[in-house]
Design a binder for these strands. Structure first.
Length: 584
RNA sequence: GGCCUUGUAGCUCAACUGGAUAGAGCACCUCACUACGGAUGAGGAGGUUUGGGGUUCGAAUCCCUACAAGGUCACCA
């Protein structure tokens, strides 16, 4: 449930509600609050109440209703007034009210501690399911950034969140990798980047197996792979020993990437750890008669729901991915007593999750409808689709490295002020690269595909991470320079320019954007908001001067407003897991 | 073939979930700099929101339909 956290909107909603009573129209304050929107232009007012929906009940034209409502409106507090604009009853707020009610709170930080929701479910968010023995590619980054931002947005919105991941450390891909490494590979194991090297082994295994399909080797290969899997399952033998060692190489590689991205998980659920329990669970429900046997496999018949047959145990008796996800869901709710369970997984898994959720329901699992699959579209490159089995991928750490190098070069070419130490340059270059990559991906709706083109993202023009970083740095630089002139008491009323008003209103909507972004699973709403805020401020910057404002009061107010923009930028980028540089 | 997603300026995307004149960024053309950091700003041009119906005061948004792109539909994970 959302809290009506905007005090100004709350007062307007209340006033409208009591005005509506004069026309025998009962509406909850919540309803009115939700109807209040933003006029397309500040000249029309700052808040809008559309009267169309009342026309039928009141048998009157919307403009007449707006006029009647205005007449029936109780007295508004100082600084608030109503304004009739056709079928809309709009409201105007002066900068003094916005400043006192919201800017002050942004500056002292209390705004960011507002209660935004109430009685919301404890939520688990599972994301970034990496595979060991496979390379981490740019596509995994989208998942990771999306999940990480979502967690930050949820927590900010007031949800208690448990973050988790479900890495694939068993299965045929692992077997193929180990098989190739043990029987075919002649290269020495490298000293570093072993996780990436394993990915290459996996890709080579795949192409060799494909090559030998249809030859006399096919049968032999299959038998050898079965042997690998058997050893892994039993937990003994040379392949099992090799698995333990190589698995760790991959994990080390993952952790490098997560450290770079600043991502951590409250819980790592390993596939290898749910494997045997998932088989037991499936057998148990087979015995109960809820699951069925079909052609030697065990599964659930979901034909009547249009979902086909959901296989859980293969004819060799081993569990497949669906079985593991069932067991995993059971554990999540049991281990953490969460009430909502979000999976950030690409859209290819849609059918899989529909089957899993439907199966949970058949099992009588009370939380089955509390599971949500956040499906997102893929990242491709100009070369086409990525696939680790094809080996046509660029390891993420290489991409990151290239972007950091580029960022550092740009800093050296463009920055002003003191010379840069090596340490500061490295740190800042890393921040800029994170911004470029994370913002570049998060600004898109999850449902839309992304084409990653390194050169295009390197241009650093327009709607990009570096643009936001630059705006932040520029404002900060100004605030620092004028820090001594910052006054305790700000007279917000002197901010009278349209551009100033637009900025104040934009700042005031930050919390609503954060809640929407969380509840709609769309971090791009926050990304777009921050970009719009920067555009507004930048336009103000070129039209008006802070330093050379006409009066000291105006200078102080503009400085305070600038400080508020900088604070919101930093906070908002933080919710996208993007750090900010001090200078660049 | 069934199901899911998507279709908006030349290109890449927005549009506060049904509201006021559909907005940004690239690219293109004009302007504005011995500046508060030009990694900028202002302006111009660019639209039958894939086509066709429907719902209503009102549709890019909801419904139907056709088309196009992508995904998916039992021993991969």
């Amino acid at each position: 449930m959302q809290v009506m956290h905007d005090k100004i909107k709350l007062e307007l909603a209340d006033a409208l509600r009591s005005a509506l009573k004069h026309f025998d129209t009962e509406m909850e304050t919540e309803e009115v609050y939700a109807l209040l929107s933003v006029p397309p232009n500040v000249k029309m007012g700052h808040y809008a109440f559309p009267c169309f929906s009342l026309a039928k009940a009141l048998r009157k034209a919307p403009p007449a209703i707006a006029a009647d409502l205005q007449a029936a409106l109780p007295a508004l507090s100082e600084g608030l007034s109503s304004k009739l604009v056709g079928p809309y009853l709009n409201f105007v707020v002066n900068s003094q009210v916005l400043g006192q009610a919201i800017m002050q709170a942004i500056l002292d930080g209390s705004y960011f501690a507002s209660e935004l929701t109430r009685e919301v479910p404890k939520t688990m968010i599972e994301f970034s399911q990496p595979n060991t023995h496979k390379a981490l590619h740019i596509g995994h980054l989208r998942n990771t950034f999306l999940g990480d931002a979502l967690i930050k947005l949820y927590r900010y919105a007031g949800y208690e969140v448990v973050s988790s991941t479900f890495p694939g450390d068993v299965g045929t891909h692992v077997a193929k990798c180990l098989w190739y490494m043990e029987n075919k590979n002649e290269e020495p194991v490298p000293e570093s980047r072993r996780g990436i090297w394993l990915g290459e082994m996996y890709a080579k295994a795949n192409s060799l197996l494909k090559e030998e399909t249809g030859t006399e080797r096919e049968e032999i290969n299959r038998a050898e792979l079965t042997e690998v899997l058997k050893q892994l399952e039993k937990g003994e033998g040379k392949y099992y020993e090799l698995w333990k060692e190589t698995r760790q190489w991959s994990i080390d590689g993952m952790k490098d990437a997560y450290n770079w991205a600043g991502v951590s998980f409250d819980q790592w659920y390993w596939e290898s750890e749910v494997d045997s329990d998932s088989v037991k669970l499936a057998r148990e429900y087979l015995a109960k008669g809820i699951f069925i046997e079909s052609e030697g496999t065990v599964g659930v018949d979901l034909e009547d729901e249009g979902l086909g047959y959901c296989m859980l145990l293969k004819s060799d008796g081993n569990g497949n991915y669906a079985a593991k996800d069932i067991e995993l869901a059971r554990r999540k709710f049991a281990d953490y007593e969460v009430e909502k369970n979000i999976y950030v997984v690409d859209k290819r898994q849609e059918h899989h999750f529909q089957q899993v959720f439907a199966t949970l329901k058949r099992m009588g699992f009370e939380h089955a409808d509390k599971c949500y699959h956040l499906k997102y579209d893929f990242v491709s490159t100009s070369e086409g689709m990525l696939a680790s089995r094809k080996g046509n991928i660029q390891p993420v750490m290489d991409i990151i490295e290239a972007m950091e190098q580029h960022a550092k070069q740009e800093i050296v070419d463009h920055s002003t002020g003191d010379a840069w130490t090596e340490e500061e340059l490295n740190r800042t270059g890393s921040i800029i690269a994170k911004g470029a990559l994370k913002y570049g991906m998060l600004k898109y709706d999850p449902a839309k595909p992304i084409v990653f083109d390194m050169d295009e993202w390197m241009k650093w023009d327009g709607d990009s991470g570096p643009y936001l970083h630059y705006q932040y740095v520029r404002i900060n630089s100004l605030c620092k320079r004028l820090a001594e002139e910052m006054q305790e008491n700000v007279d917000w009323a002197v901010l009278k320019e349209d551009k100033e008003m637009e900025i104040l209103l934009k700042l005031a909507s930050f919390n609503q954007v954060a809640v929407n972004a969380a509840q709609q699973y769309r971090p791009n709403l926050m990304a777009n908001y921050l970009f719009e805020l920067c555009k507004l401020y930048s336009s103000f910057w070129s039209a008006h001067s802070v330093k050379d404002a006409a009066t000291d009061e105006l200078k102080t107010a503009r400085l305070a407003m600038s400080q508020a923009v900088s604070t919101v930028l930093k906070k908002g980028l933080g919710l996208l897991a993007i750090p900010v540089p001090e200078r660049m």
